[in-house]
């Protein structure tokens, strides 16, 4: 029997190892492709060759971009899988819950009012605040004495999304033209961010999010049986859900602040992760994080190369690529 557990563990470890390998390969590809192409065997060489132009390209453009793609893809995948676990609804993602909408509103507000110039961290902070306010607004609006109704929450989330997007449009219509450009550019999403504070900040945040949520694997696993069953198994569901909301708003809000609204990752990645690893959160959290990173890297490479020398907004690629993958996954699942 012990052997059985070890066997199951090694299978999961194998899947994780496979994804890590994929992640490394995708990162290498991401470092190599671009205006100046660098062959994989030369990457390590140029990393130390401080005189070469490739050195500048790698250190100032491609490495930050690669790290950002992994961190944001991971954060969004993780948020999606946690939210779907809380709601036990496969359609939930940061976007449908209004978290993305709230973050967008916060960021637009900061751009329009010119508060942006106050400091580098203003944008991510505004995104996070917007996300957090939305989450708790949604939570308390659907709170009743008997507990929180998931359906109400979902409906409230969608409504808050609409309200936020209307408010964003309102702000855009009353503001100066140059601000509109900034907002539109930001909304379309881009991983073009070279400020090391932001890049490493997001990386640390996403890894912290993964570690923190990993402490909640047992409650997340119990929640698979429904909230009332989880309670009767001794889980303080209200507290757990509150903490997990906090973690997901932190992850989503900061991701959106840095890279704009990148849809679909939070929805598609959890489905994909469940397809390869089942429903056990002990591996599901890690696998969602890793596959989110791989997916984002691949989408970013496509965004950079498809219409070279121009660049597509990353949201366009994740939307199309993710949507098509999702439909084909459902199609395959139906046929087998």
């Amino acid at each position: 029997m012990e052997l059985q557990a070890v066997k199951a563990l090694s299978i999961e470890a194998g899947k994780i190892l496979f994804l890590v390998t994929l992640l490394i390969m995708a990162s290498a590809l991401s470092l190599c492709t671009g205006e100046i192409s660098i062959t994989p065997d030369r990457v390590l060489f140029y990393l130390k060759e401080s005189g070469a132009m490739e050195y500048q390209v790698l250190h100032n453009i491609r490495i930050p971009r690669t790290i950002l793609a992994i961190a944001i893809g991971g954060s969004l995948g993780l948020s999606g899988v946690i939210l779907q676990g809380i709601y036990r609804n496969p359609l939930v993602e940061p976007y449908t819950l209004g978290i993305s909408g709230g973050a967008s509103l916060g960021i637009t507000f900061v751009i329009v009012t010119g508060l942006q110039s106050a400091g580098e961290l203003t944008l991510p902070l505004a995104g996070f605040t917007g996300a957090l306010i939305t989450v708790f607004l949604v939570y308390f609006l659907s709170y009743r004495r008997e507990g929180v109704s998931t359906n109400r929450m979902l409906l409230t989330g969608v409504m808050i999304s609409f309200i936020s997007s209307s408010a964003v449009m309102f702000l855009m219509s009353v503001t100066a033209i140059e601000n509109i450009h900034g907002i539109v550019f930001w909304t379309m999403g881009s991983l073009n961010e070279s400020n090391p504070l932001m890049v490493y900040g997001i990386l640390i945040l996403s890894l912290t999010g993964l570690t923190l949520s990993y402490l909640f694997t047992a409650p997340l696993n119990a929640l698979r049986l429904g909230e009332s069953s989880a309670r009767s198994l001794g889980i303080n569901t209200k507290a757990v859900i509150c903490i997990l909301f906090f973690i997901t708003s932190l992850l989503t809000g900061s991701s959106i602040a840095v890279a704009g609204v990148i849809g679909f990752v939070g929805l598609v990645i959890p489905h994909f992760a469940r397809l390869i690893s089942g429903t056990d959160y002990r591996s599901l959290l890690i696998i969602s994080f890793l596959s989110g990173g791989v997916f984002m890297l691949l989408c970013d490479i496509l965004a950079r190369t498809l219409v070279f020398p121009n660049e597509l907004p990353i949201g366009v690629i994740t939307g199309i690529f993710g949507g098509v993958t999702f439909i084909s996954l459902i199609w395959i699942k139906k046929r087998t």
Binding site: R88, N221, R224, L225, G226, L233, T279
Partner: peptide, 19 residues
């Protein structure tokens, strides 16, 4: 009302050990 979740019977029953 038992929530319908796509987990295996084994995983389901093991949840009973949670507390």
């Amino acid at each position: 009302f038992i929530e319908k979740s796509p987990i295996t019977v084994e995983e389901y029953v093991l949840m009973g050990r949670m507390p």
